[in-house]
Design a protein around this nucleic acid. Sequence first.
DNA 1: AAATAGTGCAACCGCACTCCC
DNA 2: GGGGAGTGCGGTTGCACTATT
Length: 435
Amino acid sequence: MSSMTNMGDGRKVSKSRQSSSSDEEAKTGGEGHLKKGPWTSIEDAILVDYVTKHGEGNWNAVQRNSGLARCGKSCRLRWANHLRPDLKKGAFTEEEERRIIELHAKMGNKWARMAAELPGRTDNEIKNYWNTRIKRMQRSGLPIYPPDICFRVMHGNQESQNVGRLTDGVNQHDDLSQTDTLNIPELDFKHVKIPLDPSIFDIPENSMFEQSSDSSHGYNMFPIMHPAKRLRESAEIMQYGPVYEEDYMSDEITNQFHGNTCCSSSSSMPLSGGMKLELPSLQYLETQQGIWDTPASPLPSLESVDTLSSGLLEPIMYQPMKHFQVQETPDEAVKCKPEWDESGEPYSPLAQSSASVLTMCSPDGPQSVENSDHNIKHELGTEFPTYCSGKDEKNMNQIHVTRPDALLDLAWFENSVVNCDGESFRKDALNTFFG
DNA sequence: AAATAGTGCAACCGCACTCCC
DNA sequence: GGGGAGTGCGGTTGCACTATT
């Protein structure tokens, strides 16, 4: 049977490690001498023969019954990734690539689930592709998610919800119970930037607003492309935030908040160091969000913690959207409103959120709404020539009002916007902050 | 031509979950 | 209910190949 051993990865197998493995070594030399490393064609043949006769599963029995000197795990992996007859070979097609991007926007690093959506492709393959792609995009300074993919995710959310329900029903339906049992880390207020006039507590501003030393929580929300260029001042970023902010926030508050929001990227921290490039953005903020949200308000049915750990922005994005909706004019509320299916699960604005995040992460940084849109489209024109169409122009403008930081801003200001003047504003803000 | 850096990918590892006894 | 085996999954590693200097 043809396998990667005989195809793309022949280079590996044919080299030193492979050549050192004699055919005899394909057979076990004893229970305690399980072979590692690249598979030989002999081993492949043995495994294929065994699976053909006995079927998949019970992988440990393969080693016992076939004499193959491989652990069951290794056999399963080899079969699943290379020997399965229904595997597609070769590079991903453009459509598959699009699908992967779309699925990742929906699912995060759920490679197996993604693989289930891509017949003939393996989780490992998809994972490798994604990691490679991330690196490539990072080098190129391009957004990880093309905006139109994000919009497709959003507009196709009905489908995605169905998919999610089919493939991850537990997560989907345990939301509330999990919410109840979420282990909210104890807050360390030393690391919380309070977007208020520090005089309220008579606490020196520089301590109150001191940049968190653990800034990873901040910049992790952005898929860094060029660390040195990635993000500018948070306040600068925020200038492209919701247009409403100027309606509701005093300059002072706005500046403080935008400059210090715990959700935003650090304004001064270098965006360097290792990070996971899978929109990990608000993973940490999932808990911090409790700070900004009114504790008494019921949490929306967040995705499971597992999902959050997957790097998926979605679950934490739609709560701010819910708040966001309140402030909208009816028309806009319709546009931005988190939709709910029959089971009460909100649609996620992830698409916009992702696009927004990525917009802000363009190497040139935000210039203006128009410019950033243009930049994205321009860049995507090279990387995703077919992704952006004129019909998305309108949508793309929405990106900027739904950026995650902006959304969190708005979430935090949910109660504040009602009374945005002076003391009442501050009191409300404090109440919101401290519960 | 040789050395070095960068890239892609197969395979491994550890953890978690499910199933069965 | 508890423990072990089997399995699945995601992250990481190691190395062959390729590009660049």
